[in-house]
Design a protein around this nucleic acid. Structure first.
Length: 450
RNA sequence: GUGGUCAUAGCUCAGUUGGUUAGAGCAUCAGUUUGUGGUUCUGAGGGUCGUGGGUUCGAUUCCCAUUGAUCACCCCA
């Protein structure tokens, strides 16, 4: 038999790793709930017709397809088919590629039962048949929150506050929120006389971080921009603090354009509503992201003290549900990339040392009688909120203490002949090594007094 | 989808200019006169050297293929 393995780009998460992941998940979830978002879960698999055509040509290739059950080759003439035309005939379902399309599908299906604005969060794995590399997996988790059915800029401001709250609670101080506005991008292109090449231009300037201003200019010249216009464009890409001065400056350059004034007014309103939370927000006109469906503000969060890509992104979109035949629903959403947040926190050593997932007290029975002796007391402590376990056999004490160390259990309660005779327990602190005898009923107070 | 690097014990790695039974540290398990650990000592288990083929008297070592890992590009979280 060959050694067992797991598929490419997937991972097991050990208990020690899960403790840390849970810390991140729980933090994000509790903050989402603080802002009034409600949980939603959708199936791992969707009908392939729901997924295809939503992510562009490249996206379709990255979908995991699920082979139909039964004799799926029946009625097929294999000679007339290539692999591309074969797929829809033998696979009706696929694994979800993100959480946004399933959300749109859900909203359309349940339109009569949903009252708007609809605020939901969703934290589930998604799958992409991409080639794995650093910080990139075939199965990874997204933590989305979206507000559907309102175009209020209060949502943008709320998401800025959510970013601050989440990263403060995680202990990640060095981060920068970058914001841009789709219409600002359009205005910039217009003012440089390249409004008709909007999409090409944005793909180029989105790479500014990677290839630098020189690289951007080179590519702009290649697609036929004049030297003048590319310089003008580049001068607008500087990353500046999002504040009234920056916007006023921008208004003097783009205020004559309809798109420009709309975007600037939106951003002004966001600053006002976000208040102090907007302090570490930077206006980044090179930020483009998945342009296809974003129509208003666009967000990205970058860790500033670690070399790592974005750890969160999002933006406003119109007509999310249009592809499923339900028009007029606009909204805004963000997504945390928890796998990357994990890597950043690991690198900066930000995980709290004590985890509330681990056992608080381990009972160590020295003989069979002691097991029975511990059972009721252990359960009373559980009812009082302690995480308690009893070592399941009367093994040698060394082995039991090793087990406690391995699981980072702080307290052990040793019970043997002597303790039973005196109706007591030997309570030992595994960190200090101190040990004391106390009555069974006094364990809780003894622990709390330390 | 394109290109580079790599593959020896559970983990981190030695090693052989191709030659008998492939090593170390850590980890695991078991003992160290039987109720005290994380920092004693002793011992044990564990590898068909990623898989398949080729060259050779002989391959873990050389060649080819394949699979996987990893990094970069494309794109993206």
């Amino acid at each position: 038999m060959s050694k067992p393995s797991i598929p490419q780009g997937t991972r097991d998460f050990s208990p020690a790793v899960m403790a840390k992941r849970k810390f991140i998940f729980n933090t994000i979830e509790s903050v989402y709930q603080l802002f009034g978002f409600m949980p939603l879960e959708t199936p791992a698999m969707e009908n392939l017709s729901t997924l295809t055509g939503k992510y562009g040509n490249e996206g379709d290739q990255l979908l995991f397809k699920i082979l139909n059950n039964g004799d799926y080759l029946k009625d097929l003439n294999l000679n007339e088919l290539d692999s591309k035309s074969l797929t829809p005939k033998i696979a009706d379902r696929g694994l979800r590629y993100d959480l946004t399309v399933p959300l749109a599908r859900y909203v359309v299906m349940n339109r009569n039962d949903i009252s708007f604005p609809f605020k939901r969060y969703q934290m589930q794995p998604v799958w992409r048949a991409d080639r794995p590399q650093k910080g990139r997996y075939r199965e990874f988790w997204q933590c989305d929150a979206d507000v559907l059915g309102t175009d209020s800029l209060l949502c943008e401001a709320d998401f800025i506050r959510i970013y601050n709250t989440v990263f403060n609670q995680l202990g990640l101080k060095d981060f920068e929120i970058r914001i841009n506005h789709r219409k600002l991008l359009e205005a910039i292109c217009e003012s440089c006389g390249v409004g008709n090449q909007f999409k090409t231009i944005t793909i180029i300037i989105d790479k500014a971080d990677k290839i630098g201003h020189d690289g951007v200019k080179k590519e702009l010249l290649e697609i036929g921009l004049s030297d003048d216009n590319s310089n003008k464009l580049l001068s607008l890409l500087e990353r500046l603090p999002l504040n009234p001065e920056t916007l006023q400056n921008l208004e003097s350059k783009l205020g004559h354009l309809e798109n420009g004034i709309k975007a600037i007014n939106d951003l002004k309103q966001v600053i006002l509503l976000a208040g102090n939370a907007s302090i570490n927000v930077k206006l980044d006109c090179s930020l483009a992201r998945g342009l296809d469906y974003y129509t208003g503000c666009i967000f990205e969060v970058i860790p500033t003290s670690v070399k790592m890509g974005s750890i969160s992104g999002g933006g406003r979109y119109d007509d999310l549900t249009g592809v499923f035949g339900m028009n007029g629903i606009s909204g805004i959403g963000i997504s945390f990339g928890i796998d990357r947040i994990f890597d950043v926190m690991e690198e900066l050593n930000l995980f709290p040392t004590s985890s509330n997932l681990f056992t608080d007290i381990l009972f160590c029975p020295m003989d069979e009688n002691a097991i029975l002796y511990c059972m009721d007391t252990a359960h009373t402590l559980r009812e009082h909120g302690f995480k308690v376990e009893i070592y399941p056999s009367a093994s040698k004490l060394k082995k039991q203490l090793d087990y406690a160390n391995d699981k980072k259990i702080l307290w052990v309660a040793i019970a043997g002949e002597n303790e039973i005779a005196s109706n007591q327990i030997s309570l030992k602190n595994m960190q200090t090594g101190e040990q004391l005898n106390c009555n069974l009923n006094d364990i809780e107070s003894a622990i709390k007094s330390q």
